[in-house]
Nucleic acid binder design. Structure first.
Lengths: 197, 197
DNA sequence: ACTCAAACGGACCGCCCGGTCAACTTGCTA
DNA sequence: TAGCAAGTTGACCGGGCGGTCCGTTTGAGT
């Protein structure tokens, strides 16, 4: 979580919390939503009870991990709003999003819906930043005019999912599919699209 | 299953088997791999024990459902090999694939790996048909030359996954993303791609 | 050094899952 | 219509899950 606790954590508790978040991130990356709390605790080297002392629910723990990622992406998106080349900035953002997601399939965003208010807030901040990035790229003529921020949000998740079907994929295979998808966003040779959501 | 049983099924057994496959397809579509055998049985109006009489394992039941879908796609792909416009044929195939998958997220193809030999065979038949479809579209100049059959196989799954993030998506939103992705396959404005798998 | 709230850990609980089984029912055949 | 194999059923089992609880340990203030 990003909220500052009223009283600072005890030294060992802070250490454990950090190890727990790291272990949870790795374990969720490896096994998706099916990762068990017991396995996460074992990987972090702490007892299962300690997990629930830090996060009252498995969903809360998941939300904390996700918020971390989303927060980082939001920061990057806001940074890139001042980059010189708007088209390159959007591509760089989508590359970063795909690259980080490689560790953590974002499909729980669908399942972990409004489980946690802080998560909802962080996510909508990310969404507005991405929309601004997209508008800027459209104004520069780098992508076709019928693309929305939501399109980018949805499509930036695709490369990792696509690659997850390949058993022994090289670690940067996702770049190939991001390349294809981003080419589909370009104005050249674009066909009219069905209505947006 | 497509294999003909040595002795024909009794009338009630055949009825139950049909209802079971239908229920399983619907339940897997609704809840993914987490659909429980008990729920499937209830939806089919039969006892849980009967499920395991027809399919010795939950994975076997899943495989039977998947084989059904894959088989239909393979037939379509082979049909489209003689269509007049190779580019339109490929697009039509990808549309059919996305449209049918809407009922059944294909992500279990990754998880249900080599669980069932018949599934593996059916799947590789589909793969060769798709590759032929792609080669034909490339020769006609309808898609860029650096696309492989595997690319199409992977990308045709993407629109549904992408749309699944949208809570109340209109039922044909996937067409929008298939449109973008297919535009990314076209020769116009294509950028060089990282190496294939 | 003493104290005690804070933090820890793992046995434990209830639940639900996939899969089994033996008693029961039913459709085919003669 | 009688007999029997084929089919059905739901109670039941072992196991793993998320979450609880309380006896124990530990770090920080004095």
């Amino acid at each position: 979580m990003t909220v500052t606790p009223e009283r600072p954590l005890r030294a060992d508790a802070a250490r454990n919390r950090y190890a727990l978040l790291k272990a949870a991130s790795e374990e969720f990356a490896a096994h998706g939503l099916d990762a068990s709390v017991a396995d996460i605790a074992r990987r972090a080297g702490i007892g299962k009870g300690t997990v629930f002392r830090h996060f009252s629910t498995k969903d809360d723990l998941l939300a904390a991990v996700v918020i971390d990622r989303i927060d980082g992406l939001g920061l990057l998106a806001r940074d890139l709003l001042t980059a010189p080349d708007p088209g390159a900035a959007l591509l760089e953002f989508m590359e970063a999003a795909a690259g980080r997601q490689r560790q953590l399939d974002l499909s729980f965003l669908r399942d972990a819906h409004s489980v946690n208010d802080l998560l909802d807030d962080t996510r909508s901040e990310l969404f507005t930043a991405i929309t601004a990035l997209v508008e800027r790229a459209k104004d520069a003529g780098a992508i076709r005019p019928d693309i929305t921020g939501m399109d980018v949000i949805l499509l930036m998740c695709a490369p990792n999912h696509v690659v997850s079907f390949v058993p022994d994929a090289p670690p940067d295979l996702w770049r190939r599919y991001l390349g294809i998808i981003f080419d589909g966003l370009r104005p050249e040779g674009a066909r009219p699209l069905p209505a947006a959501s």
